[in-house]
Amino acid sequence: MLQPPPIVLSFAANDPSGGAGLQADILTIASMGCHPLSIITAITVQDTAGVEDVMPLDSEWVADQARAVLEDMPVHVFKIGLLGSVEIIAAIAEIISDYPHIPLVMDPILTSGRGDELANEEMIDAMRELLLPQVTILTPNSLEARHLAQQENDANEVKLDLSLCAQRLLHMGCEYVLITGTHENSAHVLNTLFSVDGVMRTDEWERLENTYHGSGCTLASAIAASLANGLSVSESVIEAQDYTWHTLQAGFRPGMGQYIPNRLFWAKEIEDTENENENENEEPIIEKPKN
């Protein structure tokens, strides 16, 4: 019998546009050679431009979905995306606590790319208190990192240093924090991985001209898949960044909003290579001379 692929379980919301959420997670995890399990936390009304509405599921339904598959299959990595409510956060935190040996990758989704609020302050407090202490690697963008790390005595007009944000998030219990720099005013995108010992690595990527729907979901899911495939945290971070950058480079714009990462970009590359090889092996056409 063939050995089954590593299994990644994702808690996230449904995205009917296929750009972000569970659809992004499933495509990414499968594209990287793992089997995705999908636990729906919420149903959204959204397109490539933004999120119009979110309907969180009952927290017991979320828990029951997860318990059913966890009792049936061996999960190698957990991945968390949009959560929907404080009750769902509490339910997931309880489930995760029963599996402390399974790494947890968390993409702390607070707003949509357009700026639609997807987590209120009560939910953010619950994330800090219940989930961050269990997180293996947190993957906020710079805006999310500053929001999650903000304290009451911080001056509102002062932009928090990202290294300080990382140290605060690590102090909340995360083992590692990868802060992405897509929202920073820099010529290139700088992504920095932190641990309690400081900066582990900083990776520089060409800044692409478009904006993308689901890039954060793609990165976090790619890290989860890489961990499930047996790579270390540092190796998973660089592998996932490389994969994500290529999905963005090959991205497409199916609607009137943002571009969508092409998580199957490699399939087109294989097809193009095969076509080139076929053309090279074709017998040249020799025309018969005319009398």
Rank of each mutant, 00 (worst) to 15 (best):
H35W: 10
P36H: 03
G33P: 09
T48N: 08
A63C: 10
T44G: 08
S38P: 02
L37P: 00
H35G: 00
V69R: 09
E60C: 06
Q65P: 03
Q46V: 06
M55E: 05
E71Y: 04
S59E: 08
I40S: 06
A49R: 12
Q65D: 14
A42K: 07
I43L: 15
G50M: 03
V54A: 02
W61T: 11
I43M: 12
E60G: 08
H35A: 03
S31T: 02
G50C: 07
L57G: 03
S38N: 06
L70A: 06
A63P: 01
A66P: 08
P56G: 05
A49K: 11
I29S: 09
T41F: 07
P36T: 01
A42C: 11
I29E: 00
Q46H: 08
V45G: 09
E60W: 04
I29F: 11
T41M: 01
V54W: 04
H35S: 03
I39N: 09
L37I: 10
E71M: 03
M55Y: 12
L37K: 00
R67I: 15
S38A: 15
R67S: 11
V51R: 07
T48W: 13
L57F: 05
E71C: 12
H35N: 04
E52N: 15
A68M: 10
A66F: 10
P36G: 03
A68H: 13
P56A: 00
E71Q: 13
P56R: 01
V45S: 13
L57S: 04
A49W: 06
A30V: 00
D58N: 15
M55K: 14
P56T: 03
H35E: 02
D47Q: 06
E71W: 11
T41V: 03
M55I: 08
V54I: 14
D64Y: 12
T44V: 07
A68I: 03
A63K: 15
A68L: 12
E52T: 15
S59L: 01
A30E: 13
S59G: 02
E71S: 15
A49I: 12
L70P: 04
E52M: 14
V51T: 13
W61E: 10
I39L: 07
M55N: 06
Q65G: 11
E71D: 13
H35Y: 12
A66W: 09
Q46E: 07
H35L: 01
E60V: 07
A63S: 15
S38T: 12
V69Q: 11
R67N: 14
A63D: 12
C34R: 04
E52F: 09
S31K: 02
E52H: 15
V62N: 07
S38F: 00
E60Q: 15
S59N: 10
R67L: 11
A66V: 02
D47M: 00
E60I: 02
P36M: 02
S38G: 06
A42D: 09
I43E: 03
Q65E: 08
G50H: 04
V45W: 02
D58R: 05
Q46Y: 04
Q46T: 12
H35D: 01
A30S: 11
M55G: 00
G50V: 08
V45R: 06
Q46P: 05
V62Q: 09
E60S: 11
Q65A: 05
I40E: 00
L57P: 09
V69L: 14
G50A: 14
D53F: 15
E52K: 12
I39W: 05
I43P: 00
I40F: 01
T44R: 05
